[in-house]
C-alpha cells in the first residue's frame, strides 16, 4: 500500500495542525516554548510495526502513556518520553523534585494526565477537522522497555495488513524534556482518514 503524493501532502498538513495543537497544549502546561519536528509518516505491514516503531523510538526504558481510541478512526496513540525527560516534565508541572530512578505513583499520575491532554488535543483535532467523533479510553502508563510496550498495542492484535505510523519528536525548550507522539491506525481507519482528507481539499 503506497500513499500518493497528494495523500501524503494532505496527511502531513492534517498532522501538522493536530500536532501543533498538541504542542500549544504542552506549552500552556509547562510555560515553555515547544519545538516540533516534521512528522514522519509511514505505511507498513502490521508484522513490521514493531520494527518500524523501533527504528523511530528510543530503545531504552521509557515512560509511555498509551491511549486507545475508537469510532470511525480507531487505533493506538502514544506519548513516549525517556525516563529523565519524564521526571523533568513532572518537576516542571508540580514544582516538586522527582527522586530516584523509578517514577512513583504520584509522578505517574501526573504523566497520565499530561498524556491524556496531549493525545486528546491531537486526536480531537483530527475529529474536528474530519467531522467525525473519536472516543477515548482511559489512558495507561507503561514504564518498561519499548519492545514490551509495543506488545500491548491493540492495532497489532487485529486481522489487518497495514498500519499507518506517524511519529513526531518534540522538545520543550530550556529543559531536558523531549519525546515522541505516535499514532498507529489500521488500514480501515487509514482509508477513512484519507477519504476525509480528500473531502477537505
Amino acid at each position: 500500500m503506497i500513499l500518493s503524493e497528494a495523500q501524503k501532502d494532505g496527511l502531513t498538513e492534517l498532522l501538522n495542525i493536530a500536532f501543533s495543537r498538541t504542542a500549544a497544549s504542552l506549552s500552556e502546561l509547562t510555560g515553555h516554548r515547544v519545538l516540533l519536528s516534521k512528522p514522519e509518516v509511514e505505511v507498513c505491514p502490521v508484522d513490521r510495526l514493531q520494527e518500524v516503531l523501533g527504528g523511530v523510538l528510543p530503545s531504552e526504558e521509557v515512560a509511555t502513556v498509551h491511549q486507545i481510541f475508537g469510532g470511525p478512526l480507531a487505533g493506538d496513540a502514544l506519548l513516549v518520553l525517556d525516563m529523565g525527560g519524564a521526571a523533568t516534565l513532572v518537576e516542571l508541572l508540580t514544582g516538586e523534585a522527582v527522586h530516584g530512578p523509578v517514577l512513583g505513583a504520584s509522578a505517574g499520575e501526573v504523566l497520565v494526565e499530561v498524556g491524556n491532554i496531549l493525545l486528546n488535543s491531537c486526536l480531537g483535532m483530527f475529529g474536528n477537522l474530519l467531522q467525525v467523533h473519536v472516543t477515548f479510553s482511559v489512558p495507561r502508563l507503561h514504564l518498561e522497555s519499548m519492545a514490551s510496550m509495543l506488545d500491548s498495542l491493540i492495532i497489532g492484535q487485529e486481522e489487518i495488513r497495514y498500519a499507518l505510523v506517524v511519529a513526531t519528536r518534540f522538545v520543550v525548550s530550556e529543559s531536558a524534556v523531549g519525546g515522541y507522539l505516535v499514532i498507529v491506525l489500521g488500514v480501515t481507519s487509514l482509508d477513512r482518514l484519507l477519504q476525509g482528507i480528500a473531502r477537505l481539499g
Binding site: N120, S121, G124, G127, N128, V132, H133, V134, F136
Partner: peptide, 25 residues
C-alpha cells in the same frame, strides 16, 4: 471539564444537559 476538544463532544455534552464546557489544559 475535559481534554476532549472535539466540537461533537461539546454538542453531546450540551444535549445531555451541560451548562458549560471548558477544555484542558
Amino acid at each position: 471539564a475535559t481534554a476532549d476538544i472535539q466540537e461533537s463532544t461539546q454538542r453531546m455534552a450540551q444535549e445531555a444537559g451541560a451548562c458549560g464546557f471548558v477544555v484542558k489544559p
